[in-house]
Structure formats: C-alpha cells, structure tokens
Design a binder for these strands. Structure first.
Length: 269
DNA sequence: TAACTTGTTTAAAC
DNA sequence: TGTTTAAACAAGTT
C-alpha cells in the first residue's frame, strides 16, 4: 500500500525529521549548496559548514537539524520534502555529507522556508512564532485540551488550528480528530463539554499515530503527487459524499474561516 | 481559465 | 481592548 497525504502536517514532519536523523546523525555537514536563494530566510549557511550533526527533531511543523551550536530550521509548508537523490526537478538546496552523499530539499511550489540559527536562540525563535505546547506524543487529557482551547469563542475546528494554543495540528488533523471524537466542527470551542474534550484527547493521538505510521512508509508521497484519491488514508478528509465509515451517512464538506472542513452530519454532534 | 490547495501574517471587523 | 474573521501571499495543478 502506498501511503499519501495532501501536505506535510505534524506526522509528516515527524517522519521527515526521523528520516533526516537516520541519514545525518553523527556525520559532518561539509557544506550546504543553496540553489534557490529565496529559500533562506535568515542566517548564514557558512556557519554550519564542517559541523557535526547532533540530531534531527521536530517542533510543531518545523523540522530541525541540530549541529551543536547551530541549528538548521526547515518549514516544509505545502510541498517541501527531503530526498536522498535528485528527482525530476532540481532541489532548492543540497546538504552535502562527509560520506559523499547528500540530502536534497525539494519543494515544487517553493513556499518552504529555511533559517540558520544559534541553537541557543531556538527557544526565542519559537516564542516569536507564538508556538503553543505540543499535543503529542506526551499524554494530554481532556482537561488539558479544555484549558488550551475552551476559552475560544470560535468553532472548535477553527480553534484546533490555533498554533499559539496547540502547535502542530493542520487542516486535515482538525477534521479527522473531530470525526474520531464524534464532535461537530461547528460547535463553539467554549461550548465543548468535558466529555467531548476527553474524546478529543483520545482522538488526537489516535489520528496522529495513524498518520505517522503512514508517513513513515518508504513509498510515502503527498497526495498532490499521487493524483489519486485511492491512496487517501483519512476517514473523512477529501471524502465528500462518500459514506461515513462509522454510520454510513454521506460525508459533508463546508468552509470554515476559509478552510475546507469535512465531517459526518450523522454521527458528529 | 479561473478556482482551488496550505499555513502564516497582516489588516479589518466585531 | 481583546477576539475573531477575512484577505493576501507564496506557485503550481486541474
């Protein structure tokens, strides 16, 4: 089975960071070849040349390559991905390693961003980005979700996308988590009951773990590249008019705050 | 061809 | 004033 996702969200970035860690940890980064100067938002790539990779990890939707005192920060946006060899299109950058191999950064739509930061400045960087706490993989109960989002007047689906409250959830995750929890996306966050928050607390890791497993497959590609809905691993996202896997009612689509929401009118209250 | 896809930022509205 | 929503933006696909 070929896994797919329309774009990189938290699980896809987690999988990307894991791959990057496997490929680079302990190796010296000889140089970063920048083929598209607009990729680099801040910092000097010369500053990481010759440094050894400590680890690669994820924060929200950022993939981080830590090289002791310096860190490369990637945001994949819609189409950014790391590859082990050149594909059809030239990458925007290549990370050349001391074993002669390289890691390419492909990004068809060129929305992705790269920063070179002092590792000591990472926390301030994320503070400046107004990133809230991570929802996963640590245990987060219903009370935690209620504390983060329960004060918002906006619909709960819109609230789940607030990166300053819970960092890392994207448009797909918001629809999928609410479907798993059986909560209507139109419910005001402030009106979500403790029971419903508890259901959301269970649904979030269930969705994220599934999506991570999918994104971790070797043949994983974004849905935008596979051009086929047959690879859609999600329960309701991208499945308008298909029967709900739980109750059979047709999945509906509507727009909230300019974003597509998919849900089942039959079993999401 | 124009509409659609996204997260983030900024501006406007409530 | 604080909160929320809409618009704009990046660029490519359909």
């Amino acid at each position: 089975m070929c896994g797919s996702s329309p774009l990189p969200e938290l699980p896809e970035v987690e999988a990307t960071a894991a791959k990057l860690d496997r490929w680079t940890r302990g190796r010296s980064l000889l140089r970063v070849e920048l083929l598209d100067a607009s990729l680099l938002k801040a910092g000097d790539l010369q500053a990481v040349a010759g440094l050894t990779v400590s680890r690669a990890w994820r924060r929200a939707k950022y993939a981080l390559l830590e090289l002791g005192p310096m860190t490369l920060v990637f945001h994949l946006r819609m189409t950014g991905k790391l590859v082990r060899a050149d594909g059809k299109r030239p990458p925007r950058a290549r990370l050349h390693l001391d074993d002669g191999s390289f890691v390419g950064f492909e990004d068809v739509r060129r929305f992705a961003e790269l920063w070179v930061l002092d590792t000591d400045d990472l926390e301030a960087f994320f503070t400046g980005k107004k990133l809230g706490p991570e929802p996963w993989p640590m245990a987060r109960d219903g009370a935690w979700w209620a504390a983060q989002l329960g004060g918002l007047k906006s619909p709960v689906k819109t609230a789940l996308l607030r990166q300053d409250k819970v960092a890392g959830l994207g448009n797909i995750a918001a629809s999928e988590i609410l479907w798993r929890a059986g909560v209507s996306p139109s419910t005001a966050a402030s009106a979500v009951t403790p029971t419903q928050w508890a259901a959301i607390a269970e649904a979030a890791p269930a969705h994220l773990a599934m999506a991570l497993a999918d994104a971790s497959q070797e043949d994983f590609v974004y849905l935008t590249e596979s051009k086929s809905a047959a690879n859609n691993p999600f329960r309701v996202y991208g499945r308008e008019e298909e029967p709900c896997p739980r109750c059979g009612v047709a999945v509906a689509r509507f727009v909230q705050s300019g974003r597509a929401t998919f849900w089942c009118p039959g079993c999401q209250q």
